[in-house]
């Protein structure tokens, strides 16, 4: 029983990483109705910017704020310069543009800051809690994720801007006819997604260390968490992240040979969820008029 509890708590701590990033995935999906494969690398790049600011002597929270603003601008800029020209092209062309962005950010970060592993500071106390199962940083990261979740939830549910953005993503033509400035909304969506990604990056970088490839595996789990929870549900994505962390840990302990098959079980979870609930555990059914 104690082992079970230990593994659940440790799983929640890891799940916090996935949840944080899944939220960023949902944000961009809400804004553009696609996955953005460059999301992880954009977050990584923002995290490097924060690292650089701190290397120049700024405090954590000041660097955090400046990076957040930088990411907002970077997101909108990328949309206007790179993606706007291809937005009416096929989905495949857009995906190619995302993958190109991914490679560009990865190489750019490697060229500017080299490929060595760098430590990233945590603003939270380093004390170990609950019999050393989680650290102050784990709790702080989970708290930041939940605060962001509340913000995103409020934004989409209760603000006019959020509503306009959802409309612009789901049905651009009708939205335009209703007076929504679709391109403006999409640019704003990119900006917010990049900013949320940068927060996720700055939170997980302490745990996984900063290097140009730090997001490769996290983005996989982030997508998985978002799919399990439901791509149109921020709360679902966060829940999906925690669920993934716990399931992964429990299979490692209770399934024979499970510690070698953790990733397999996590991905199996996605298949099972999609078989029975194609829109994810918390997703809404979408009815499209043909």
């Amino acid at each position: 029983m104690e082992l079970l509890l230990q593994q659940i708590i440790a799983g929640l701590a890891t799940g916090g990483i996935y949840a944080c990033f899944a939220l960023a995935v949902v944000m961009i999906y809400q804004a553009i109705d696609h996955f953005n494969f460059a999301q992880g690398e954009m977050a990584m790049f923002s995290t490097y910017v924060a690292w650089q600011l701190m290397a120049w002597g700024l405090s954590f929270w000041l660097a955090f704020g400046l990076t957040f603003v930088f990411s907002l601008v970077m997101g909108a800029f990328l949309y206007l310069v790179v993606l706007k020209p291809v937005q009416n092209a096929s989905a495949l062309s857009q995906i190619v543009a995302f993958i190109a962005l991914m490679c560009i950010f990865n190489s750019l970060a490697g060229t500017i800051w080299d490929y060595s592993v760098k430590p990233f500071p945590s603003p939270f106390p380093e004390t170990a809690l609950f019999g050393a199962l989680v650290t102050g940083h784990d709790l702080g990261m989970i708290a930041v994720t939940l605060i962001m979740l509340a913000g995103v939830f409020y934004f989409f549910k209760f603000s006019t801007l959020g509503l306009a953005m959802r409309a612009a993503a789901q049905n651009p033509e009708s939205a335009q006819l209703c007076g929504v400035r679709v391109q403006m909304m999409t640019a704003l969506g990119w900006a917010l997604a990049a900013a949320i990604g940068s927060v996720a990056g700055m939170m997980v970088a302490y745990k996984v260390f900063l290097e140009p490839n730090m997001m490769y595996s996290i983005i996989l789990y982030g997508f998985a968490a978002a799919i399990v929870g439901g791509l149109d549900s921020p709360a679902g994505a966060v829940a999906g992240g925690f669920l993934l962390g716990v399931v992964e840990n429990l299979t490692g302990v209770y399934v024979p040979g499970g510690s070698e098959l953790k990733l397999t079980f996590a991905l199996l979870l996605i298949v099972v969820v999609l078989m029975f609930k194609p829109t994810g555990l918390f997703g809404h059914r979408v009815v499209k008029r043909v």
Binding site: L3, Q6, Q7, A10, G11, A13, T14, I17, A132, L133, V204, K207, V208, Y216, S217, I218, L220, Y221, N249, G252, V253, S259, E260, K262, L263
Partner: peptide, 20 residues
Amino acid sequence: EEPYETSDPSVDSQIVKLAA
């Protein structure tokens, strides 16, 4: 004996298990 995959984001849970 605790394995990790190169696709794992971190080895935190493996270390917790080894310590336990």
